[in-house]
């Protein structure tokens, strides 16, 4: 069982990384959450959030950090938000999407599981 969970977690992490670097699309961060359906709610949320948040944060490593900092200050000034939020906001969204995706699919899995057990009293 642990092996299965671990394998799914690894697949989830890898998919989060691939989505971040290949598409950069936060909506697709739903996908890594799917693989966390067997985990307990609390762990699926934590892992889901962490893997997408960190994957999307890691994109910044493609750029010189000095330029990331300068550009976030400029964009923050234009939009009217703190520069740190400019850097964090998209990875945060991706993290939240994966976290709640994991929660959603864990919930569905749990419902199916409890449904089956209530049909079979033995």
């Amino acid at each position: 069982m642990n092996l299965k969970l671990t394998a799914l977690a690894v697949i989830s992490i890898l998919s989060a990384i691939l989505i971040a670097f290949l598409t950069g699309d936060a909506i697709l961060a739903i996908i890594p959450g799917v693989f966390l359906f067997m985990m307990k709610f609390r762990y699926s949320i934590m892992l889901g959030f962490a893997e997408s948040f960190l994957s999307f944060m890691a994109i910044y490593l493609e750029y010189p950090l000095k330029d990331v900092s300068s550009l976030s200050s400029i964009i923050g000034g234009i939009i009217g938000l703190p520069s740190i939020l400019i850097i964090l906001i998209y990875p945060l969204l991706a993290g939240i999407i994966t976290a709640f995706s994991a929660l959603l699919f864990s919930g569905v899995y749990e419902l199916i599981k409890t449904g089956k057990s209530s049909q079979n009293p033995t």
Binding site: A20, T23, G24, A26, F56, M57, I75, I89, Y90, I97
Partner: peptide
């Protein structure tokens, strides 16, 4: 959050 991510494509680290 999906809707917000579409609106905030500007700050997407990969494509923004």
């Amino acid at each position: 959050t999906s809707y917000a991510s579409i609106q905030l494509q500007t700050v997407n680290p990969e494509n923004g």
